[in-house]
Write a protein that binds this DNA or RNA. Structure first.
Length: 879
RNA sequence: GGUCGCAUAGCUCAGCUGGUUAGAGCGCCUGCCUCACAUGCAGGAGGUCCCUGGUUCGACUCCAGGUGCGACCACCA
């Protein structure tokens, strides 16, 4: 029989599930419980990276779990057109071909992008399938689909009509490379080493100068004032006087504004309202002229005089050189400061005056805060709520227009004849007032404007759709913290505004995947691990299990291949457990997966009890999004309870009478079958493969992915069996420990003497099992440990193994001393605790009682071991 | 500057509402090809739970302060 090789079956099952329609939700029925999610739509330009792998694995675990719980489950996949990112990709291609989009023209360019999207875009959805994600592909959406585009227009028009969208001239963030405006959060702030140039601006009357400090000398061409603090004594007399701007000779006033920090630099600051947000605000306050000295491509404008046409950088160095020469430059300091860069191309963004479209989000943001207060949406882990709240409380108008061609074109038309602006759901052909010609706004909308509608636009809105009533609000959104502002916040605002209800009940925020050294993975660092290579090497199941096991809340994930290998071994272990099962099934025959009503044999009773305990724990963990707990508990159950102990114990049971053999095979099969269902959400492929090979009787038809998730079975809990096998395990471990510590070869069969004590009955009842597990020749009852034996205490009962004929008793003396040392400390610790009157007085009685029990047990064990040590030494073991 | 998170075995990390002999995986040491599995089996070594105070009968766990990392936000030229 073949060993575990994921490549032989993963694709097969994905195809089978997909073709059978298993990913689509059940048909609606009254009173149904639903579970719904929307995928965070990956960019069409994207290829699968670790972040996607984690995000979608966690979603798939939830999806499969809830589907198995019998809920009408839907997971809607799709992609984002990703305006800037996609346009950049195609523009790069054009550049390589020696042309550009302007040469092509708008229409041809957009066609070209669509063509690119058809051919090489969206590869990521194929890659997602390799992970086993069970999204309903029949519901796949794209943000530029007709339906979604209609939703975008509807939202835009309604917000415009309500006065929440307006067009305005404002200082915005401009990316000279992408040639578009950016919203505030699309600007990343980078600390960089720079300089602080101190420049002298002379007074118009020739009476000396004032020194200003700047990190961006080139903007001085746009200065329209110099400001000082109104209470700064150094400058009090000078306020109101005129200065002459170097180079351009423009006369600018010295004004007073309390924004100025007296401590910084010289206490005087040059004001460039056209290129700095603070200066802009000040410019508004003081009614200063606002001059744009730069063009949209980052070169200097006609306002820059002789520097017109130079790049920002060239202009800067030319000016500095000039100021050095003419004495305008007083001095230069090294200065580290924050620089705004474009989140798509990393170029330095330029604050620029520009006419753009804005959404007034204040009121929408407040509504989402109320919803959070009322607990209608819950963040998991909860602390992200605070981050969300802080941002929402300080939110500023959202700039939504982008000077791109790829995206939803703004549904606004301007009449050249009568100057009217028309915002409309349908394309406007001519001006309704003057019948004049109209032209549509050239710009497109921010990508996040359309993805902000995702939870309802994907489900048919603005039409009345069955999906919407069934599946909105969605149950949970699974995403990384990096897009809480970009995406989660926008969905909250737009969902509440247009659906009158939150878009999701829970927001599960997962960690970032880093490399094994804790570095963020990035192409430039070259430390990117390709998820598909991992899948190729270890299988999707092992990879998924690893991601789940790592997904502890609130901590970043350091992925290492060693760890993945460990979980591949786990899946292999499961595979081999099934080989064992099959072997026994062939041997015993008459297989069923139905759990025996009332198993008689202790191992069978025990494993059924452990199984239901595991089921309860795993369900609790998944219900609470504690993926790592679920994975850890499954690992522990499968490997250490089912394989290490139960399977080994069944080897004895299978040596028994036919009735015992049948009961054991049925239990083994039933527990295994249940375990597969319990594992399925995390490791879907291998569980399907193994489940299909199980006896049909007691298993059910179809796929395991449609089978029921294991129930919590109170009637399977068997405290007596838990105790008895627990004791058995303790005894076997004690015996094995003695053998190993004494270095007695495994082949040597030993005798075991069990003294009086609570475990004695258990040992005698289960002699066959213990003999096999501990490799014993026989088990005897004895009141006193035989001379020359090694002694241990298991389950408060003395266990003695004669070893004198095999080894020097000196080893036993040493072992006993070590044990005694340990137990001495334990007794001392407990004695001290119990000797404290305050503890006896204040601690809950059950805690005191528990500690008394522990103390007594430890004391008894101590005595046994001490006695044994005495005897060993008396016999003449080396001391 | 503000906010948040993290410091536990050599490494990567679990430890929920305070009472455990502080756990796992990997690595390490010893012995085993025992009829599912050497991707394995059995046994073992290894920890001042960052520091200092405090609350408490009792603190890895709660509180305060400190130190060291990390992240996010922020308009100081």
């Amino acid at each position: 029989m073949a060993g575990y090789d994921p490549r032989t079956f993963e694709e097969k099952w994905y195809t089978a599930w997909s073709e059978s329609g298993a990913f689509a939700p059940a048909s609606p029925k009254p009173g149904e419980k639903t579970f719904s999610m929307v995928i965070p739509p990956p960019n069409v330009t994207g290829s699968l990276h670790m972040g996607h792998a984690l995000n979608n694995t966690l979603q798939d675990i939830l999806c499969r779990y809830h589907r198995m719980l019998g809920e009408a489950t839907v997971w809607i996949p799709g992609m984002d057109h990703a305006g800037i990112a996609t346009q950049n990709v195609v523009e790069k291609q054009l550049l390589a071909e020696g042309t550009d989009r302007h040469a092509l023209g708008r229409e041809a360019f957009v066609d070209r992008v669509w063509k690119w999207r058809e051919e090489s875009g969206g590869r990521i959805t194929e890659q997602l399938r390799r992970l086993g994600v069970s999204c309903d592909w029949s519901r796949e959406r794209f943000t530029l689909d007709d339906g979604l585009s209609r939703a975008v227009r509807e939202v835009f028009v309604q917000l415009y009509e309500q006065g929440l969208i307006r067009r305005d001239r404002y200082l915005i963030n401009w990316c000279p490379r992408c040639h578009t405006a950016l919203s505030d959060i699309e600007v990343e702030h980078d600390d960089r080493d720079g300089h602080l140039w101190h420049l002298r601006y002379p007074f118009a009357d020739g009476s000396g100068h004032i020194t200003v400090a700047t990190t961006r000398p080139e903007t001085m061409l746009g200065d329209t004032a110099v400001a000082v603090h109104p209470e700064d004594e150094r400058y009090a007399e000078l306020i109101g006087r005129e200065l002459v701007l170097p180079v351009l000779g423009r006369r600018i006033p010295l004004i007073a504004d309390s924004y100025v920090d007296r401590e910084f630099g010289s206490g005087a600051v040059k004001i460039t309202p056209g290129h700095d947000p603070n200066d802009y605000e000040m410019g508004l306050r003081h009614d200063l002229p606002m001059i744009s000295v730069m063009n949209e491509d980052g070169t200097m404008s006609s306002e820059a005089g002789e520097y017109e046409g130079a790049t920002r950088e060239d202009c800067r160095s030319a000016l500095v050189k000039r100021f050095e020469a003419d004495g305008t430059l007083e001095r230069v300091d090294a200065h580290r400061h924050s620089v705004g860069t474009c989140y798509r191309c990393q170029n330095v963004v330029e604050p620029m005056l520009s006419v753009q479209w804005f959404v007034e989000v204040r009121g929408l943001a407040d509504r989402t805060l109320e919803a959070i207060d009322e607990g209608r949406t819950r963040f998991v882990p909860a602390h992200w709520e605070k981050t969300y709240r802080a941002w929402m409380e300080n939110i500023r108008p959202w700039c939504i227009s982008r000077q791109l061609w790829w995206g939803h074109r703004i549904p606004a038309w301007y009449c050249d004849s009568c100057d009217r602006t028309l915002v409309s759901r349908e394309d406007v052909q001519s001006c309704p007032d003057c019948n004049g010609e109209v032209r549509q706004d050239e710009d497109v909308l921010d990508t996040w404007f359309s993805s902000g509608l995702w939870p309802f636009s994907t489900q048919g809105w603005p039409d009345e759709a069955e999906d919407l009533t069934r599946f909105y609000p969605t149950s949970v959104l699974v995403t990384g913290f990096d897009i809480i502002f970009f995406w989660v916040a926008r969905m909250m605002m737009l969902g509440l505004r247009f659906m009158d209800e939150v878009p999701f009940r829970d927001v599960y925020i997962h960690a970032l995947v880093r490399d094994e050294y804790g570095q963020k993975m990035s192409k430039s660092k070259g430390n990117v691990i390709d998820p598909l290579e991992i899948v190729d090497e270890f299988g999707a199941d092992a990879f998924r299990f690893t991601l789940a096991a790592f997904a502890a809340m609130g901590r970043d994930i350091r992925l290492s291949e060693d760890r993945i290998g460990g979980y591949r071994n786990f899946v292999n272990k499961l595979w081999n457990a099934d080989r064992y099962r099959q072997l026994k099934a062939d041997d015993v025959g008459d297989a069923t997966c139905a759990m025996p009503e009332a198993p008689r044999l202790m191992p069978n009773r025990w494993i059924r009890s452990r199984l239901t305990a595991a089921v309860a724990d795993v369900r609790d963990a998944l219900d609470g999004y504690r993926f790592n707990d679920a994975a850890g508990r499954l690992y522990q159950f499968v490997w250490h309870e089912f394989c290490d102990w139960y399977i080994e114990l069944t080897k004895v049971c299978f040596d028994g009478e036919q009735a015992d053999r049948e009961e054991t095979l049925a239990t083994l099969s039933a527990v295994f079958e249940t375990t597969l269902r319990m594992l399925h959400p995390i490791v879907p492929f291998v569980t399907e493969e193994l489940w299909q090979a199980l006896p049909a009787q007691g298993r059910g038809e179809g796929f395991i992915m449609n089978a029921a998730y294991p129930d919590r079975r109170a009637d399977w809990v068997d405290a007596a069996a838990d105790d008895e096998v627990g004791t058995l395990i303790e005894v076997v471990r004690a015996a094995r420990n003695i053998r190993a510590e004494m270095s007695i070869a495994p082949r040597v069969e030993l005798q075991l003497h069990v003294g009086p004590g609570p475990a004695r009955d258990v040992v005698e009842r289960n002699a066959a099992l213990i003999t096999r597990m501990a490799r014993l020749a026989s088990i005897e009852r004895s009141e006193e440990a035989p001379a020359g034996s090694a002694v241990a205490v298991a389950a408060a009962t003395e266990i003695a193994i004669p070893v004198a004929e095999h080894v020097d008793l000196g080893a036993e003396a040493a072992r006993l001393r070590k044990e005694l040392d340990r137990i001495d400390k334990e007794v001392a610790r407990l004695d001290k605790k119990l000797g404290n009157p305050k503890f006896l007085e204040k601690a809950p009685p059950e805690v005191v009682e528990q500690d008394r029990g522990k103390r007594d047990a430890a004391a008894a064990e101590r005595e046994t071991l001490a006695k044994s040590l005495e005897r060993v030494q008396a016999i003449g073991g080396a001391s």
